[in-house]
Amino acid sequence: MKVSPVGMLVIAVCVLAAVACWVVGYFGLPNEVTHRNLAENPKLAVSVTSGKTSATRNTSSAAGLPASSTAVSKPLAQLDKAAKTVDLNITTNQDMAFNGYSKGALKIAVPTGWTVKVTFSNSSTIQHSVGFTDWAHRQGNSFPAAFSHSLMQGFQSGITSSHAPVSFQFTADKAGKYAMVCGIPGHAAMGMWDEFDVSDHLQAPTVTTAKGTQKVS
């Protein structure tokens, strides 16, 4: 079939327009839409909000990452001005999860000997608590403290949204694999636990989820 010069011109214009649209879309849209450079997609925010929220990624200095329905204002983890100290802002709500993560989906790692300052808040009427115990006890009914003072006050009774946040701190002085758990009976067995590691080989704390690992800085 012969194509007239006008037809050829129309085809050429259409091809050029299609190529232009592809170029604009590929380079103009974010990686998570185009799926290019998957190794860098998505780049973890340095400040992390709750994972199930649709919160905007924050690139300020601190660290972190998915079940609450409201974005948290503080990053999950950030370095304190004091040397070798990391602040953990642990939140929960009606879900059996810490900052939106449960059953080990969240891993926080700190260098051996660092001080860990924890602020725990609960936005639901269901009682929750947080503490750090041996890995083998993460789904049990009793939770021996992994470190001195690594269980919050009222660990077995918990707090609700009517309580002020609870703060405590401990020194992660023993390298190994541990667990962050809720001390309310039955909650850890239902999956309310995540991983907490202490390593002789780390230079700074890290936060890891399915999206990747981010160093706290």
Score class of each variant (00 low, 15 high):
V3C: 06
V3N: 09
V3R: 09
V3M: 11
S4N: 00
V6M: 06
M8G: 11
L9D: 08
V10S: 06
I11M: 13
V13A: 11
A17I: 08
A20E: 06
W22Y: 15
G25V: 09
G25N: 11
G25F: 10
G25A: 11
G25K: 11
F27A: 01
G28P: 14
L29H: 08
N31C: 08
T34M: 04
T34I: 00
H35A: 12
N37H: 09
L38K: 09
A39G: 13
N41F: 01
N41R: 06
N41P: 04
P42R: 05
L44S: 08
A45G: 04
S47M: 01
V48L: 12
V48E: 15
T49W: 15
K52N: 14
T53H: 03
S54T: 13
S54M: 02
T59A: 15
A63Q: 06
A63Y: 08
L65Q: 10
A67R: 13
S68Y: 14
T70Q: 13
T70G: 10
A71N: 11
S73R: 14
K74N: 10
L76E: 11
Q78F: 03
L79Y: 03
A82P: 12
I90D: 02
N93E: 15
N99C: 05
K103L: 09
G104F: 07
L106P: 02
I108S: 03
A109L: 03
V110K: 03
V110G: 00
V110S: 01
V110C: 01
G113W: 00
V116D: 06
V118T: 14
V118H: 07
F120T: 00
S121W: 01
S121Y: 07
S121K: 04
S123Y: 06
I126G: 08
V130T: 09
G131H: 06
G131A: 00
F132R: 04
T133M: 06
T133F: 01
D134L: 02
W135F: 02
S142H: 12
S148C: 07
S150G: 07
S150H: 06
L151R: 05
M152G: 04
Q153C: 02
Q153L: 05
F155E: 02
Q156D: 06
G158H: 14
S161R: 15
H163V: 10
H163C: 15
H163W: 11
F168Y: 13
Q169T: 13
D173T: 13
D173C: 10
G176D: 03
G176E: 01
K177L: 13
Y178V: 12
Y178P: 05
M180N: 11
V181T: 04
V181R: 01
C182T: 09
C182P: 13
G183A: 03
G183I: 08
I184L: 07
H187L: 12
M190L: 10
M190P: 04
G191Q: 04
M192W: 08
M192E: 14
W193M: 01
W193Q: 03
E195A: 11
F196V: 05
F196K: 05
H201I: 10
H201F: 14
A204Y: 10
P205N: 03
P205R: 06
T206Y: 13
T206S: 05
A210F: 07
K211S: 15
K211I: 10
K211D: 15
G212I: 07
G212Y: 03
G212S: 06
T213R: 04
T213L: 13
Q214F: 12
Q214R: 15
